[in-house]
């Protein structure tokens, strides 16, 4: 495996490791962005109003049961090859954890802080944007980072329908019975997952108020 991975020939060209890595990262980040834009407002709104929580929980459970491979193939059969089916499948995969995390996060905000927010004269939008969401951030990040791990790992499957990403190495290796290439693909995906998670952990540190870190643990979470 080390041989395949460190062979300089595999590190250049349009099918080389850097290009596949970037493709994989691209799928991941755009997927997460789209999923977040859909799931965070939904989860936050339902969490804020407290109505329709069962819809959110039911919807995320149903989506969780959806096999990504099938969604990918179906969309390919309907809409043709390309990146579009990959995004549909991955976004559907990423929505449930983000939505559930946001919903749970907003519901878990100390009710007395929310009461006080209204009591001091915030409008509903202010209550949501200035108090509920900032306080829900740790759980929102929890759901988001879980989704990120799943998306990085699952984006591998995109290569099954001929799209790019690190999955190419896994599927090409499988076709050629080239175990070194397969393993290299798997290791690269796992590595990318760790890096992406570290990146979001850093973002979390920067954007979550220090006041929300557990007390007495030196800010570690």
């Amino acid at each position: 495996m080390g041989g395949w991975l460190f062979d300089p020939a595999h590190w250049s060209g349009t099918t080389g490791i850097p290009v596949r890595l970037l493709e994989h990262l691209g799928y991941t980040l755009l997927t997460l962005l789209i999923a977040a834009v859909i799931a965070i407002p939904l989860g936050a709104f339902v969490g804020h109003t407290g109505k329709g929580g069962f819809v959110i929980v039911g919807l995320s459970n149903a989506l969780r049961a959806l096999p990504t491979t099938a969604v990918l193939i179906l969309v390919v059969l309907w809409a043709g090859l390309g990146d579009f089916p990959v995004y549909v499948a991955l976004v559907l995969l990423a929505i449930p954890p983000i939505m559930a995390g946001t919903y749970a996060g907003v519901r878990a905000v100390d009710p007395s802080a929310v009461d006080a927010a209204r009591g001091v004269g915030m409008r509903e939008s202010g209550v949501l944007l200035q108090v509920e969401i900032p306080n829900a951030l740790p759980l929102i990040y929890g759901g988001f980072r879980g989704a990120a791990l799943q998306v990085v790992a699952t984006a591998t499957i995109a290569a099954y329908t001929g799209a790019g990403g690190l999955g190419r190495f896994v599927f090409d290796g499988l076709a050629l019975q080239d175990f070194g290439q397969m393993l290299a693909g798997a290791v690269l995906v796992a590595l990318l997952a760790v890096l992406v998670d570290l990146g979001f952990a850093g973002l979390q540190r920067l954007t979550v108020s220090p006041g929300l870190r557990p007390v007495g643990t030196g800010g570690k979470n």
Binding site: S112, A113, N135, L137, G211
Partner: peptide, 29 residues
């Protein structure tokens, strides 16, 4: 909201905003 900004409100659990510093909490209104 306008009415409430003109009336101070203190509750049992204090209801401070955990994500804001003490100073920012006081500066809310």
């Amino acid at each position: 909201p306008t009415l409430r900004r003109g009336i101070g409100y203190v509750i049992q659990q204090a209801g401070l905003f955990p994500h804001r510093t003490v100073l920012d909490n006081i500066a809310t209104v």
